[in-house]
Simulated assay, not measured.
Amino acid sequence: MKAVLMTAAGNPEVLQVQEVTNPGVPVGETELLVRLKAAGVNPIDTKLRKRGTFYPDRIPAILGCDGAGVVEAVGAGVQKFRVGDHVYFCNGGLGAHQGNYAEFTTIDERFVARKPASISFAEAAAAPLVLITAWEALYERGRLEPGERVLIHAGAGGVGHVSIQLAKLKGAHVCTTVSSQDKANFVKQLGADYPILYKQTDFIQAALDWSGGEGVDLAFDTVGGETFHKTFPAVRVYGDIVTILEPDANTVWKAARLRNLRIGLELMLTPMLQEMVEAQQHQAEILEECAKYIDAGKLKIQVSHRLPLEEAAKAHELLESGSMTGKIVLLIGEE
């Protein structure tokens, strides 16, 4: 089969299209063989390409955590899926197991969800990692409740644009930081109540004014660095802040401590890295729930760029250029 191999750690040029062995008929009782139609491109892909995967002794590697495709064959013990089913998932691509920059992959049925029927394979492949991240960060780490006020950083980005929608589905009020008027218009269409143009406005004061001077109940940081600790004063006393980045060593914690903030760390890759079967099953259940929202027209996935598999290196360059709206997807064969 055709696949994009990461031949070494380095620049996007290390991503090379090659012919590799097809995974073939599933060997596991509960495995599916999936003909991939599209693969999502995420920041974790570019980070692993630059620094090396979590398993540096297993090079070359196939990157790509997000995938969507058609079930080609099933193991003898498979119960939920049949040949021909359309599926989407976040699995592999970290170095231990094959990722989705390829024509085929195998995956345990417990970690798979049915693709939303109303969207394309490209949109489905763009969704899993960001949906799970946003769901866990807002609903599980941040314990979001109806009527609460939320600040979401980088609302036009991959995680941000689905976070806005999930927060609104919970009945929350949402303000979000964006870099341009075009992005402000975009996030308004998603339901954001108050876009903050952070290049022109102090987002801390804006969030305080919007929340009557108290601060938001929950802040969701998808940017990291200084943005994380600068957000502390924008959160109410005894409020929550969740980040998807590792706090910097220079983080100034004083405001968080004085305000008794509850700090949440969100890494949706943990179940895969730790091989936690029940947690991976739970993430598949999250995707099943999100599929219902998508098919009901209550949740949309924004795909900004669709590129052929052969242009994986270009996709990485685009993502690393920054300031993306929505997601980048690699198309594999015909949809």
Results as ranks from 00 to 15, higher is better:
Lys2Asn: 08
Val4Gln: 06
Leu5Pro: 08
Ala9Pro: 00
Gly10Thr: 09
Gly10Lys: 14
Val14Leu: 10
Thr21Cys: 04
Val27Asn: 09
Gly28Pro: 00
Arg35Lys: 15
Asn42Ser: 12
Asp45Leu: 04
Phe54Arg: 00
Phe54Thr: 01
Tyr55Lys: 00
Pro56Thr: 08
Pro56Asp: 01
Pro60Ala: 09
Cys65Ile: 08
Asp66Glu: 08
Asp66Met: 08
Gly67Leu: 05
Gln79Met: 10
Lys80Asn: 05
Phe81Ala: 00
Asp85Ser: 01
Asp85Cys: 00
Asp85Gly: 00
Val87Tyr: 15
Cys90Gln: 07
Gly99Thr: 05
Asn100Leu: 03
Thr106Val: 15
Val112Lys: 15
Val112Trp: 15
Ala127Gln: 14
Ile132Thr: 07
Arg141Cys: 04
Gly142Phe: 12
Pro146Ala: 00
Ile152Pro: 00
Gly155Pro: 13
Gly160Cys: 02
His161Val: 04
Val162His: 06
Ile164Phe: 01
Ala167Arg: 09
Ala167Gln: 06
Leu169Ile: 00
Lys170Leu: 01
Lys188Leu: 12
Ala192His: 04
Pro195His: 13
Ile204Ser: 09
Ala207Met: 01
Trp210Arg: 13
Asp221Phe: 02
Gly224Ser: 07
Thr227Trp: 14
Thr227Glu: 05
His229Gly: 01
Phe232His: 04
Phe232Trp: 02
Pro233Gln: 03
Arg236Ala: 11
Ala255Tyr: 04
Arg257Gln: 09
Leu258Ala: 03
Asn260Lys: 11
Leu261Phe: 14
Arg262Ser: 15
Arg262Ala: 14
Ile263Asn: 08
Leu265Arg: 08
Leu267Phe: 10
Met268Asn: 04
Thr270Val: 15
Thr270Gln: 10
Pro271Leu: 06
Met276Ser: 12
Glu278Thr: 12
Glu278Ile: 04
Ala279Leu: 08
Ala284Thr: 08
Glu289Gln: 14
Tyr293Phe: 14
Tyr293Asp: 03
Tyr293Cys: 02
Ile294Asn: 14
Ile294Ser: 13
Ala296Cys: 09
His305Thr: 05
Arg306Ile: 12
Glu310Cys: 03
Ala315Tyr: 13
His316Glu: 06
Leu318Phe: 05
Glu320Trp: 06
Ser321Tyr: 07
Ser323Asn: 13
Ile328Gly: 11
Ile332Cys: 06
Gly333Glu: 05
Glu334Asp: 14
